[in-house]
Each structure stands twice: as C-alpha cells, then as structure tokens.
C-alpha cells in the first residue's frame, strides 16, 4: 500500500534511538535506564512479563509520558519530552494496549482521524490565520478539499481491506459496537492511515483467539514485507520469533537481553525471567523438571 518502501535494514544511524530512559512512579521504578534502537525497515519486538515496563517505554517514546531521565532521538532529532502531537507529526504512530478507539465515531471516521496529520488542502500551512482558514475551507469545501477527502476515504477502504471482511462491512458502525478484536484492528488501521515512519504496536493480539492471532501475524508480516518499520510489544512468543529481526527483553524495568530471536530464546537471563529458578519454596512439585528446558518453549 502506501508505507515507505525501504528494505535495507541497517543504515548508518537508527531511526529511533532511546538511551538511558528512566521513569519512576513513587517508590516504583517502572523503567530503570533502558536503551533501545530501531533501524529503518526493521521489526523489533519488546517482550517481558506484565509490569516489566514495556508500555511505559511506549508511552515515553510516543510522548504521553515524560521520562525522568534519558534521551530519545527519532530521525536525528531529540524528541524526549515533546508533545504527543509533535511526535505524531515527526512520523510515529501507535496503538494502545487496551484499545483506545473513538467510541462514538464510525470505523471510517476512526481511520480518517489517523490521516489527520496528512490533511493538506483543508489545513493550509499559513501562520496565525491557519485555523480560521481551516474553518472556512471546511464550511465552503472547494474542489481541492472535496478531492482530498474523497482520496482519503478511498484509502480508508483500502486499509480496511487488509483485514478481509472483518471491518469493511461495518465501516459506518460506531466503534463502541465492535468486538474487542475488531477494536484492535481499527486501531491498527488508524495508525496505518498516518503512514508513519515508525509504527508502535502494543500487544496487537491481546484478547484474540488462535485463529485471529494467526491472521494478525500474517497482516504484520505483510506490513513488514512492505518495508514498514515496526516496534512491537507482544506476549505470544511464537509470533515474536517468526516476525522479529531483533528482540529486546525487559524485566523489572531493565533490559536483560537483546539480539536475534534464536539467541534470545537460549539466553539464561531470559529463561530465568520467564521460567524462574526452579527453586521456589521448599518442596517444588515434580513437574518442576520441565522448567529446566534449555530454551523458551515455542512451538512452530
């Protein structure tokens, strides 16, 4: 579709580079000095148990929260502490873990909001009178504005067709009437409509059954094949292993491992975080032996 086509995974500097990110809430350190980078065209996954700081890190990158320390560079500029709208304008779009669709807006309007930053004809880039010109153009609606809106509506249908017939037949229904899985899909469609240079996906398959999860895996794979740069939070490890160029493992607010999926699977620190020491309590049950498995169990 319309994503930037740039297949070369490693260029000189990373597209996104966060260094030393820290965020504390009271006595709890949610993110305790994380470094993280994503190169153009890469798909990087962030994994780790609930509460490891994944979503907090996403909030810091997308500007919803401000780091107590650390720097975030995106496409060469420091974006740490910038407003969410400023970061969106820089080319980052995200989805939310619990699904934040606009409940009273139709699916089509939800996705069109994603393209808000791309409106040109109706939002002339004039200083001071820009907002008033926008109001006037919205009310008068000259041909250029109507053409822009029509183009975007076509594009919305195109994006929604990515999800087969999950969303297209419901395009005019309000988002509050959708199932949980469909809300997640609307969020991804909305993010794609922004044509972001970097797409942040926060657990896109949460609440999905195996069939739906497999479907989502294919969709993300196709986005990656088109050259879309993606930073993914996910718990379903087989999905992570199949999709990722690189995996970053967080635990307790810190990065405990990073590397190719295969390398991470066999990293002792990761296995410990996921599977424990196997020495909990005085008398562990017999089944405990299973945790001595040398790699994270992932079935293909």
């Amino acid at each position: 579709m319309n994503a930037p086509v740039n297949a070369s995974p490693i260029t000189t500097a990373p597209l996104l580079e966060a260094t030393g990110l820290v965020r504390r809430f009271g006595g709890v350190t949610a993110v305790g000095g994380i470094d993280l980078s994503v190169f153009e065209g890469e798909l990087v996954s962030v994994i780790g148990p609930n509460g490891a700081g994944k979503t907090t890190a996403f909030n810091l990158i997308s500007g919803l929260d401000k780091p107590d320390a650390g720097a975030i560079r995106f496409a060469g500029a420091n974006i740490a502490g910038r407003s969410p709208e400023g970061i969106a304008a820089a080319g980052i779009a995200r989805t939310f873990q619990h699904g934040r669709v606009f409940a009273n807006l139709s699916i089509a309007d939800n996705v069109l909001i994603g393209a808000h930053g791309r409106l040109r004809a109706v939002r002339p880039d004039w200083p001071i009178i820009g907002p008033l010109a926008e109001l006037a153009l919205a009310l008068v609606r000259p041909a250029s504005v109507r053409a822009e809106e029509a183009t975007l509506r076509d594009e919305v249908s195109e994006i929604l067709s990515l999800f087969g017939d999950r969303l297209l037949p419901r395009i005019d229904q309000p988002a509050h009437s959708l199932s949980y899985a469909n809300r997640r899909r609307v969020e991804i469609a909305r993010a794609l409509a922004a044509r972001p240079r970097l797409l942040l996906l926060d657990e896109p398959t949460a609440g999905m059954n195996p069939t739906e999860t497999a479907e989502m895996l294919e969709i993300i794979a196709s986005l990656k094949a088109r050259g879309q740069t993606i930073l993914l939070i996910e718990h379903k490890l087989d999905m992570v292993m199949r999709l990722s160029d690189r995996v970053i493992v967080l635990d307790d607010g810190r990065k405990i491992a990073e590397g190719k999926p295969q390398a991470v699977r066999t990293d002792p620190a990761v296995i410990e975080a996921y599977l424990g020491h196997g020495n909990i309590g005085a008398a562990a049950p017999a089944g405990n032996a299973a945790t001595a498995a040398p790699t994270l169990p992932v079935t293909a």
Partner: peptide, 20 residues
Amino acid sequence: AADLLVDTRIRDAYLGGAEA
C-alpha cells in the same frame, strides 16, 4: 499443575502460542 507444567499445549497457551 504438575500435568500442566509438562503439557506442551499449556506452554503455548501461557506464552501465547497460536496452536493452543
């Protein structure tokens, strides 16, 4: 619990495998 620990289905389910 002991059976679940050695059950491959459960490994997939708890780590979110698509084949659970």
